[in-house]
């Protein structure tokens, strides 16, 4: 695949990303948002400036961070496991996060629930990775253990929700994920944490260009320098970071890497940027739709993602059926 073609794709994705940012930050149910855009350069403390500063811009920021984390995390996991169905939450992230969030809402009043989710996600990921054993580490084992942990914790979460029906609604709402509120961490800390993690990922991205080779060919090299575990830990941390930002959002982490792969082939240096753009744009568009479709009611972001994500994914699947074999 030629560099020109890839550059063109990246440019198109950048344009789409910018449109997504515009929609999410400025456009709304009532207007096309042009005056809000002008306001951005002239924040004078009136209602609209406050709307931008307090509500819209942090929301865009969280959308970008969550989408980027999920997509890159999915890309890392899919590349190491060579399994197109691997998703960021496979290392027990979603169950740990969900468990943390439920505990927080039920027993700690629900303040800082995303911090609970983050901690829960990290603990469960650590548990799953350690349980798979650093010595005889195998990806299949990791996926299966992660799956079991997710199922187990899912059952516990359902049980806790059923036991506390009075809080069931707010729990379900939080568990589907959203980027409207942030209860855990200040935006500045979040940005710093995010940038550090993405920088670390950037270091390992070219390595994936080596790991894309058949394991039969890379066996000898890999034994000397085992990057699999580092990459998995990074991807687990990214997924936990996405929980901290936006709660549990399924689907982005599996769709964005797939679409990127269809567009760019297996060159991970391009895939990295493509995933950042597609993941963020996806979440921002979904958030935009969740705001306007049933105005003034906002429907949970996770639902919108599933609604628009599934048809897009199936479309790509039928368009190019052969990519399931890689």
């Amino acid at each position: 695949m030629s560099t020109t073609k890839r550059t063109a794709y990246i440019l198109i994705l950048t344009v789409i990303f910018c449109i997504a940012v515009y929609c999410s930050a400025f456009a709304g149910y009532h207007d096309n948002g042009l005056h809000l855009l002008k306001k951005l350069f002239n924040l004078d403390g009136d209602t609209e400036s406050i709307l931008l500063e307090i509500l819209r811009l942090p929301r865009v920021l969280r959308g970008i961070i969550a989408g980027c984390c999920l997509a890159v995390s999915g890309m890392l996991l899919q590349s190491v496991s060579k399994n197109p169905l691997a998703e960021p939450y496979i290392t027990g992230i979603s169950s740990g996060a969900g468990f943390g969030i439920v505990l927080s809402v039920l027993f700690f009043g629900g303040t800082a629930y995303s911090l609970f989710g983050f901690t829960g996600a990290l603990i469960s990921a650590l548990f799953v990775i350690l349980f798979c054993g650093f010595g005889r580490f195998s990806i299949t084992k990791l996926i299966l253990v992660g799956l079991s942990v997710n199922m187990f914790a899912g059952a516990v979460i359902s049980f806790l929700i059923l036991k506390n029906t009075d809080k069931a609604y707010s729990l379900m709402y939080i568990l589907t994920g959203n980027i409207t509120e942030n209860t855990g961490i200040s935006d500045l800390h979040l940005i710093l944490l995010f940038l550090c993690t993405v920088f670390l990922c950037g270091l390992f991205v070219p390595k994936l260009n080596f790991l894309r080779l058949d394991t039969g060919l890379t066996h000898n090299e890999k034994r000397k320098e085992n990057y699999d575990i580092t990459v998995i830990i990074l991807s687990a941390f990214l997924a936990a970071l996405s929980v901290l930002t936006a709660g549990i959002l399924s689907f982005v982490g599996i769709v964005a890497p797939q679409i990127s792969k269809l567009l760019f082939g297996n060159d991970y240096r391009w895939l990295f940027f493509s995933n950042i753009l597609i993941g963020s744009a996806f979440i921002l568009f979904a958030d935009f739709i969740s705001r306007i479709i049933l105005y003034p009611v906002q429907i949970p972001l996770g639902l919108v993602i599933a609604f628009i994500g599934s048809p897009i994914f199936i479309y790509f699947l039928t368009r190019k059926g052969d990519f399931l074999h890689d």
């Binding site: 695949m1 390992f204 792969k261 760019f264 082939g265 297996n266």
Partner: peptide, 22 residues
């Protein structure tokens, strides 16, 4: 062996160069 999709022959054979450095 399985081959990764969407790569030119040149990109495929140079994969090993990424193994040892960052």
């Amino acid at each position: 062996i399985k081959y990764p999709d969407g790569l030119t022959l040149f990109e495929y054979v140079t994969s090993f160069f990424y193994a040892t450095s960052f």
